[in-house]
Every structure is written in C-alpha cells, then in structure tokens.
Simulated scan of single mutants.
Amino acid sequence: MPDQARRAQLAASLVEVRRRIARACSAAGRDEGSVELVAVTKTYPAEDVVLLAGLGVTDVGENKDQEAAAKAASVASAGAAVRWHFVGQLQRNKAKSVVRYADVVESVDSLRLASALDAAAGRHRNAPLDVLIQVSIDGDPARGGAIDPVTTASPSDPERDLGRIAEAVAASGSLRLRGLMAVAPRDWEPGRAFESLAATAERLRADHPDATVLSAGMSNDLEQAVRHGATHVRIGTSLLGMRNPLR
C-alpha cells in the first residue's frame, strides 16, 4: 500500500507550488499553462516519484546518473510513466547510460559533450534526444555552462561557445535542440540573472526558432524566472520538503 502520509504531504506541497506558479504567471501577464513543473527528486526514493506521478506530475529531474538510472528502472517497473530530465553536470563517459532513460538532457555545455551524446543516442535510441544547452550566466568555469560572448566577459573558449554548441546540436541527427537552461549565480540578484538569460534565449531563437524552452528557476526564485520567460521551473525542496533523503 502506498505511504498515505507521504502522499498527503506531497499533495499539499504540490498544491502550493502550483499556486506559486499560477500567481507568478498572473503577475507576469502569462497563461498558467505556459510554465511546466519539473520535480527534482535527486536523493529521494523512487517511491516518491511514483506518488508524484499519481498526483499528476509528468516531468522529473535527476542530477546523478547512477542514482537516476536505477530510479528510472524502479519507477518503470512500478508502472508509472514520467519524462526524465537529466539536470546535473554530465561527464562524457556517462552519455551511453543517460541516453537510455533520459527524455531530456538539460546540461549540455560543451562541444565534446554534445558529440558524445549524439553518438550514444544514435546507437541506443529510436528517437532524437531533446537537449537544452546550459548557459553560464556569470562565466564562472567552476559551475560549468556554455558562454554567450554577448553577455559574459569570459575568455574565449570555442569548446564552450554557445553558438557553436547550438549549431552542433541542431546539425545532429540524434539530438534535438529545444532551448536553454541556467541556474542563477548565488551572488547575483535572481531577476538580473534571468533578465540576462532571457536576452540570450532571444538571440538563440533568432537562429533556431524551435528552441523555445527556457528552464530556469528553482524553489527560491521561481517567481523571478517566470517573470523573465521561464517555460520550465525545477522544484525540489518546496515540493519534496525536508524528508530524510537517500544516502
């Protein structure tokens, strides 16, 4: 029998998160349906994903391959169907594993990673893999992310150039460029960060009109992200609470 107490906890949190999204959309003059929720369940068990799926959550994010692969298998065996988003930094040697279960990889930030995913998806998938390019808003190499030279005063690095990565993904036969993802730097005001991201997204769409997805905003800044055009918000703590996570 499902954990009814946990289900009730998740249901209440989900109602509040959806209310926040609806209020943010209203404040921004946007339709509530223009923003999708991605439930970030990293460190939480597969049982939580199954419960969330039963509550109507369709998209789930994970950031570590070893955990995500096992969790995706467990959720599938339980009969629940969700779209898996890989949202963490990804090593090229994990591409073969990730393409087997992920529907979307949100963290492509280099030409080498795009190439590795293209090769793996071509061998192990029957349909193109949706890809978001992760953008570095402040250019800090420690956090990863592609560089938009228009907005980021960062040393030139062709490997991390946003335009080059976008062209490589768009030209791939096994990947499909859907848009951008970013995390607001901790030392930036979120509105400023997402305003910069929105400008980058607009430039990307000028060259790639189908790249309409903008994944931005988490539990503490979803309102600012929605105000600046986020189409997907990645919510963990506000949805799953402080339950003891997996180790």
Rank of each mutant, 00 (worst) to 15 (best):
S26D: 15
A27N: 04
R30N: 09
R30A: 09
D31G: 14
E32I: 12
E32T: 14
G33W: 15
G33Y: 14
G33I: 02
V35L: 11
V38L: 09
V40Q: 00
V40D: 05
T41N: 00
T43L: 06
Y44M: 08
A46G: 11
V49T: 05
V49M: 04
L52T: 02
G54A: 00
G54I: 13
G54Q: 00
L55I: 04
L55E: 02
G56I: 02
T58N: 13
D59Y: 10
V60P: 00
E62S: 07
E62Q: 08
N63Q: 15
D65I: 09
D65T: 12
D65K: 06
Q66E: 10
Q66G: 05
E67A: 04
E67S: 09
A68I: 00
A69G: 15
A70Q: 15
K71I: 01
K71L: 06
A72W: 15
A73H: 05
S74Q: 14
V75F: 01
V75R: 03
V75H: 11
V75I: 03
A76G: 10
A81R: 15
A81G: 14
V82G: 02
V87L: 10
V87D: 10
V87H: 01
V87F: 04
G88W: 09
Q89H: 12
L90V: 05
R92I: 07
R92P: 08
K94C: 08
A95E: 02
Y101R: 10
A102T: 01
A102E: 08
A102G: 05
A102N: 12
D103Q: 11
D103K: 09
V104G: 06
V104I: 13
V104P: 04
V105L: 01
S107M: 02
S107V: 14
S110E: 09
L111C: 11
L111K: 11
L111R: 09
L111W: 10
R112T: 07
